[in-house]
Design a protein around this nucleic acid. Sequence first.
DNA 1: TACTAGATTATAATTGTTATCGTTTGGTTA
DNA 2: TAACCAAACGATAACAATTATAATCTAGTA
Lengths: 154, 154
Amino acid sequence: MESRIDRIKKQLHGASYKLTPQREATVRVLLENEEDHLSAEDVYLLVKNKAPDIGLATVYRTLELLTELKVVDKINFGDGVSRYDLRQEGAAHFHHHLVCIECGAVDEIQEDLLEDVEAIVEKRWNFQIKDHRLTFHGICWRCHDNHDEKEESE
Amino acid sequence: MESRIDRIKKQLHGASYKLTPQREATVRVLLENEEDHLSAEDVYLLVKNKAPDIGLATVYRTLELLTELKVVDKINFGDGVSRYDLRQEGAAHFHHHLVCIECGAVDEIQEDLLEDVEAIVEKRWNFQIKDHRLTFHGICWRCHDNHDEKEESE
DNA sequence: TACTAGATTATAATTGTTATCGTTTGGTTA
DNA sequence: TAACCAAACGATAACAATTATAATCTAGTA
């Protein structure tokens, strides 16, 4: 955990930015909630606990900065809010998401799975792929199980 | 063209909605610009030509309605604007997009390409897929060609 | 004709995000 | 330490996209 903060600090310094207390608090929130997909507002509320004087604009600025440095990914599931996701260190490509249309849960797929598809696209459409976004919408295993239970008790 | 409008009319009636003049004008704009990925604002401006008295809110409502009925797809490339895309009739799945990070062009891929990936995901993550969104970000063939020309002339 | 439900318009309000501006901070040099 | 400067800050205004509200209109029906 501390080592990751250190690495992020170095990344900032490398681009001649500083790891201010506000930025550190923001990064810590992201680290502590790595599993979730927090919106800027979510991050703001959580950072408030650590640094009550922080302003919303600073959180936005920090998230923007971290996105530029590719420390976080800014994602958009179409609900009108940007969400911010700490990158897996060393991951070349964006991971994928499973969005449940019943409960709204968002799970992640770390595997790439797209090598074959990308090869086809690069060749057939003569398109040089730099990154990709893949999201599946459907019913997650939890909601699936719930349905089963319901059916059993009926 | 007319037959597609008729089918959309039937879909509306089936859900007990009417094809009002405003809705028809909106659908016509979508049909006439099927290749593009229009934003609500784009649609509004185009519809204005056909029906100058239409209001922006009506366009939003109509697009929302058409989205519900799965006549159009609402997409989001992360630039803060929703875009609306007429569905291919009978297409079970969402098509994919190639977004050029140089010129911003958006091309479409109609092929599915994801059958194998979906089979893996359904099985391994026990996730019942209903739809998917796949976007590749990279350099399109046009920008690619331009680079080549530049290099040649230098 | 009067009635009713749905649709429409104009406008106000809301929401997420970004820009502005005056102030503060942290590092550097004298 | 003191003086300085650029970066970063917080509060707030501005902004753009979207949605809600309220009054009005329209089509169909009794």
